[in-house]
């Protein structure tokens, strides 16, 4: 009888614990397979949160870089028009100087663009934390690149990394197609008043426009990869939460029913024991006279 009471008390305790914690697995022995699977689930859930964070910061970085490059393209286009105007043979040396000043202004704004930061990090310094371009009178272009040639690669999934930047050395001061080089040559040519040099420099600016356009493809590819990963991670979060609740969660309806069942059983067992214990022959005998 006491064993029955103990057992029903234990069942009641288990039911209570499930309802109060909302968990069906409170220790590994409750369900070893689920407990083991939860190790993976816990790690994956933590990672997915961070991946989602990485994707959203990377997306803003990539979008910002892409829009900076669009600005650079339009700056280059203005410089190209200015160069064409300067090379048309009718411009006087004084006019050319004025145009040279305009192009110098464009060059300055391109340098500012190349030094853009997002969240305190430079977009075009590779993985370096140095300001990408600083003025340097000893350099032929007047500016030195201080960053490195590496790209930042960000984890956005298990063993999925995406490169989210291009170094300035590739975008702005590439040896074959240098944005800064072409603009600074154009300024020098205009200052020297040599219209054929201006023409050559203008052509170089034209090809730089095409080159920057190609670099934009990198950013739009990264953007689409990040967007699709964002959707995947949202889905994955839902999957992981569902998995967690399947593994160790409690179905509230079942748990509540179990609890009320266990309570009834326990009361019944107590009532039965209370009834049986005092029941013996002595109760039915009259006291000896």
């Amino acid at each position: 009888m006491l064993a029955t009471l103990q057992q029903s008390q234990q069942t009641l305790n288990e039911a209570l614990q499930q309802v109060s914690t909302g968990l069906s697995v409170n220790q590994p022995s409750d369900n070893p397979t689920a407990a083991a699977a939860m190790v993976e689930n816990t790690i994956e859930t933590g990672d997915v949160d961070e991946y989602t964070q990485n994707v959203s910061t990377s997306l803003s970085t990539v979008k910002e870089a892409s829009s900076v490059l669009s600005t650079v393209v339009s700056s280059l286009t203005s410089a190209q028009s200015a160069g064409i105007e300067g090379a048309n043979g009718t411009s006087s040396a004084a006019t050319m100087k004025i145009i040279a000043n305009q192009v110098q202004g464009i060059l300055d704004s391109v340098i500012t663009d190349a030094n853009t930061t997002v969240g305190g990090a430079y977009l075009f310094s590779g993985t370096s934390t140095s300001t990408p371009y600083t003025a340097d009178p000893t350099s032929p272009t007047g500016y030195t690149y201080n960053g490195n040639n590496q790209t930042s690669s960000v984890a956005i999934g298990d063993q999925t990394n995406v490169a989210i930047n291009l170094p300035g050395s590739q975008v702005f001061s590439n040896s074959s197609n240098s944005v800064i080089g072409s603009l600074s040559s154009l300024v020098s040519a205009l200052n020297s008043g040599n219209s054929s040099a201006v023409e050559t420099a203008t052509t170089a600016v034209g090809s730089a426009i095409g080159f920057v356009g190609q670099q934009q493809v990198f950013y739009s590819n990264a953007e689409s990869q990040l967007s699709s990963q964002e959707t995947f991670l949202q889905q994955d979060t839902v999957t992981l939460t569902t998995q967690e609740s399947n593994l160790i969660g409690v179905n509230e309806a079942t748990a509540a029913t179990d609890l009320s069942q266990a309570e009834t059983d326990n009361s019944a067992a107590l009532a039965a024991v209370a009834k049986v214990l005092p029941n013996n022959l002595l109760n039915y005998l009259s006291a000896p006279t």
């Binding site: 790690i43 990672d47 990485n54 690669s153 984890a155």
Partner: peptide
């Protein structure tokens, strides 16, 4: 070995997350 927040599963999870965060 129960998930108490101070167990190895939680520690592995935090370590892994911190590396993902670092990659960003």
């Amino acid at each position: 070995f129960s998930s108490t927040g101070a167990d190895l599963a939680s520690a592995f999870s935090a370590f892994s997350s911190s590396l993902v965060e670092l990659s960003g």
